[in-house]
Lab assay of single mutants.
Amino acid sequence: MADQLTEEQIAEFKEAFSLFDKDGDGTITTKELGTVMRSLGQNPTEAELQDMINEVDADGNGTIDFPEFLTMMARKMKDTDSEEEIREAFRVFDKDGNGYISAAELRHVMTNLGEKLTDEEVDEMIREADIDGDGQVNYEEFVQMMTAK
């Protein structure tokens, strides 16, 4: 299944994987998964984290390695993001709930994920998604960005 991913997608997933893999040992533990999910405003229980890991832990060693992570991402993409997942993601970014993602809100979430971005990089990300040019990202623009192939 992971063989249907483009090189660009694999590179993006590698970057995402390293955000989860806090200690850089090449595997994601339940603790690391929990840290990232909490930084995104989720509050999973230990059991939920274990279930999430077990779902993709092909070799049964209790952690997720990069090939397992790729399989999980490929699977998720095949079920292409349901509207509800996209709306949920939008809410994570839209901290003040005004229906727009500002540069400050984007920077806040990315920083929580451990991504240190310059102001230019954040502005560039907003510009790429900002179709109507108002300097922020509304829900429609967010959907376009998330579903762009």
Rank of each mutant, 00 (worst) to 15 (best):
M1A: 07
M1E: 06
A2G: 13
A2F: 15
D3S: 03
Q4I: 08
Q4Y: 10
Q4D: 06
Q4G: 06
L5T: 14
L5W: 03
T6V: 15
T6E: 08
E7M: 06
E7D: 14
E7C: 06
E8A: 05
I10H: 06
I10D: 03
I10C: 15
A11M: 03
A11Q: 05
A11V: 13
A11N: 13
E12Y: 02
E12K: 11
E12A: 15
F13Q: 01
F13N: 00
K14V: 01
K14W: 08
E15C: 04
A16M: 12
A16V: 12
A16L: 11
A16K: 02
F17D: 05
F17Y: 04
F17G: 02
S18P: 11
S18K: 06
S18W: 09
S18M: 07
L19N: 07
F20G: 05
F20E: 03
F20W: 14
F20C: 13
D21M: 07
D21K: 02
D21H: 07
K22I: 12
K22A: 14
D23R: 08
D23L: 00
D23P: 03
G24F: 10
D25Q: 06
D25S: 09
G26V: 11
T27F: 03
T27Y: 02
T27Q: 03
I28S: 09
I28W: 04
I28M: 15
I28F: 14
T29D: 02
T29L: 04
T30M: 03
K31G: 10
K31H: 14
E32W: 09
L33S: 09
L33F: 14
G34W: 02
G34V: 04
V36W: 02
V36G: 09
V36R: 01
V36M: 10
V36Y: 00
M37L: 11
M37G: 00
M37W: 14
R38Y: 00
R38I: 01
R38M: 13
R38A: 04
R38F: 02
S39P: 13
S39L: 14
L40D: 05
L40E: 02
L40V: 14
Q42V: 01
Q42F: 10
N43V: 08
P44W: 08
T45W: 07
T45R: 11
E46G: 12
E46K: 06
E46D: 09
E48T: 00
E48I: 08
E48L: 08
L49G: 13
L49R: 14
L49I: 08
Q50D: 04
Q50M: 01
M52K: 07
M52Y: 07
N54M: 09
N54D: 13
N54T: 04
E55G: 13
E55C: 03
E55V: 13
E55Q: 10
E55D: 11
E55Y: 07
E55K: 11
V56L: 12
V56K: 15
D57W: 14
D57G: 12
D57Q: 08
D57V: 10
D59I: 05
D59H: 15
G60Q: 06
G60M: 10
G60K: 15
G60S: 14
N61R: 03
G62T: 01
G62L: 08
T63W: 04
T63P: 13
I64Q: 06
D65A: 11
F66Y: 12
F66H: 04
P67H: 10
P67M: 01
E68Y: 05
E68W: 07
E68T: 10
L70M: 12
L70F: 06
L70T: 01
M72G: 00
M72I: 11
M73F: 15
M73K: 14
A74R: 06
A74Q: 04
A74S: 11
R75F: 06
R75M: 14
K76T: 08
M77K: 07
K78L: 01
K78T: 10
K78C: 13
K78Y: 10
D79F: 09
D79R: 11
D79L: 09
T80M: 13
T80L: 13
D81T: 09
D81P: 01
D81F: 06
D81H: 00
D81G: 13
D81W: 10
D81N: 10
D81A: 14
D81E: 15
S82P: 05
S82M: 07
S82Y: 03
E84Y: 09
E84I: 15
E84P: 04
E84L: 09
E85V: 09
E85R: 13
E85Y: 10
E85G: 11
I86T: 13
E88W: 14
A89I: 10
A89Q: 03
A89G: 00
F90D: 10
F90L: 08
F90N: 15
F90K: 04
R91K: 04
R91A: 06
V92H: 07
V92A: 12
V92K: 08
F93C: 03
F93E: 06
F93L: 12
F93V: 11
D94R: 01
D94H: 10
D94W: 02
D94Q: 03
D94N: 11
D94G: 10
D94I: 03
K95T: 04
K95G: 04
D96R: 02
D96M: 09
D96V: 09
G97F: 03
N98R: 10
N98S: 10
G99K: 15
G99C: 12
G99N: 08
G99E: 01
Y100I: 07
Y100L: 07
I101Q: 02
I101G: 02
I101S: 03
S102Q: 09
S102C: 14
A104P: 13
A104W: 05
A104H: 06
A104Q: 04
A104S: 11
E105G: 12
L106M: 03
L106S: 03
R107Y: 01
H108E: 15
H108N: 13
H108R: 12
H108P: 09
V109Y: 03
V109L: 00
M110C: 04
M110Y: 05
M110T: 11
T111N: 00
T111S: 08
T111D: 01
T111H: 04
T111Q: 05
N112T: 12
L113Y: 04
L113W: 01
G114V: 05
G114E: 04
G114R: 05
E115A: 06
K116C: 10
K116I: 13
L117D: 01
L117A: 09
T118L: 08
D119R: 10
D119P: 02
D119C: 15
D119L: 08
D119A: 15
E120V: 12
E120Y: 13
E120C: 12
E120I: 12
E120W: 10
E121Y: 10
V122N: 00
V122D: 06
V122F: 02
V122K: 09
D123H: 04
D123Q: 02
E124I: 10
E124L: 00
E124R: 11
E124C: 15
M125F: 05
M125P: 01
I126W: 06
I126H: 09
I126S: 13
I126L: 11
I126Y: 11
I126K: 00
I126C: 04
R127A: 01
E128A: 14
I131T: 13
I131H: 14
D132V: 09
G133D: 06
G133E: 12
D134W: 04
D134C: 09
D134Q: 08
G135S: 14
Q136N: 08
Q136F: 01
V137A: 12
V137C: 13
V137H: 06
V137R: 06
N138D: 12
N138E: 14
N138V: 13
N138I: 13
N138A: 08
N138G: 08
Y139W: 10
Y139D: 13
Y139R: 02
Y139V: 01
Y139N: 13
E140K: 11
E140V: 10
E140A: 12
F142D: 04
F142E: 09
F142N: 03
V143M: 14
V143S: 02
V143K: 15
V143L: 12
Q144G: 09
Q144M: 01
Q144C: 05
M145C: 08
M145S: 05
M146N: 01
M146W: 08
T147M: 11
T147I: 13
A148V: 13
A148W: 14
K149F: 07
K149D: 04
K149V: 04
